[in-house]
Design a protein around this nucleic acid. Sequence first.
DNA 1: ATAATATACTACTCTATTGTAGCATTTATT
DNA 2: AATAAATGCTACAATAGAGTAGTATATTAT
Lengths: 137, 137
Amino acid sequence: MKLTNTSEYALRILTYMAKDPAQLYSAKSLVEKLNISDKYLRRLMTTLSKQGFIYSIQGREGGYSFRKEPSEIRLADVVDAVEGMDTYAGCVLGFEECSCENPCVMHATWIKVREEFLSVFTNTTLADIDFEQAKRY
Amino acid sequence: MKLTNTSEYALRILTYMAKDPAQLYSAKSLVEKLNISDKYLRRLMTTLSKQGFIYSIQGREGGYSFRKEPSEIRLADVVDAVEGMDTYAGCVLGFEECSCENPCVMHATWIKVREEFLSVFTNTTLADIDFEQAKRY
DNA sequence: ATAATATACTACTCTATTGTAGCATTTATT
DNA sequence: AATAAATGCTACAATAGAGTAGTATATTAT
């Protein structure tokens, strides 16, 4: 029950930006705040830009800002964009053919966990985050 | 929300064996049934043996059988033995210092998912599996 | 125009997981 | 004792994710 580092980074970045969504953020400022390596963050920002979450503005005084409203960005959308959600929707034992109609022995046990994950990640947007309760960023 | 392949394999093997827990299983029979490569399965069986879940009986007519009762093997124990549960207990954004006292912005959202996972995997043993409902194995 | 400052792109390296090959060891059967 | 059939071990190969380096491109201020 662990996202890839890349998904973690993407969520770190976008949740950080969502706290003040109108601002323009430079790669430099994000790197300093979020403890992600410079080059890797830049590459990820390009991905997030191409996926339509953010604008990237090149040149001096450039940076990144939201293209979509935070309320229109679900956590699952972010994960899906950078690593794909397919893995998270699959069988816990790794069987391709597993489904509710053709379940593996773990299916009934696992589905409770999987549904909770999918439910939280599809029903939570960047605008739903309670920034006040957090002691970080 | 995906286990490693190795964890998947370990659970495939042990849940399969748990359906008829008194039996002695050869590596060959497990490979044929469970679609795991021969060498990798053997290595994994040695790990599961060293971790105390199963006996391994060498020589002709050898094989593997349960050392612990299936009712004493929790799913979390299996995952912990082959890949460690630490990753699954951590912060969704990857912050080392994240906790309920010092939460990240995603903490409240993520904890619901994490607790469901930990609860299911620590409260389910190999004996709790409903083999009748499964259409596989 | 030029310099400064920002992002974009491509290719490479590093690391951990996963998978494979070959040989060694063990034990029952004959 | 020899053979056959099983597991054990060590080293290597393949792959994917993560991270790095260097160069190219774009834009603004002067």
